[in-house]
């Protein structure tokens, strides 16, 4: 699968900015998360991001996420759109 660099979301309150970059095959997901609520929700956010990437068929990528207190359904939406854009499916 060809992955282009793509992003989705914003840095507004309650949103999350997600950027996906290509990585070598077999490299897996390298996720860098910064979050305003990292102490409270860091692991939960990472899990939701990884799960959504998997559901959208992204297996190898560098992913950067900057979270401003987004709830799960927003995180899922932004990751899905970033994934679709990275795959050129929009």
């Amino acid at each position: 699968m060809i992955i282009n660099k793509a992003y989705a979301g914003t840095l507004e309150s309650s949103d999350i900015f997600v950027e996906i970059e290509p990585a070598d095959e077999g490299a897996g997901i390298e996720l860098k998360l910064t979050s305003a609520v990292y102490k409270q929700f860091g692991p939960q956010i990472e899990e939701v991001i990884l799960e959504t990437l998997k559901a959208n068929g992204i297996e190898d990528a560098k992913v950067t996420a900057n979270d401003r207190g987004a709830v799960d359904c927003t995180i899922r939406a932004r990751v899905e759109v970033a994934a679709l854009r990275a795959k050129g499916e929009v």
């Binding site: 102490k39 409270q40 929700f41 860091g42 692991p43 939960q44 799960d72």
Partner: peptide, 8 residues
């Protein structure tokens, strides 16, 4: 809505 936060 938010999930259960980790205790500080």
């Amino acid at each position: 809505l938010n999930g259960v936060p980790l205790k500080p």
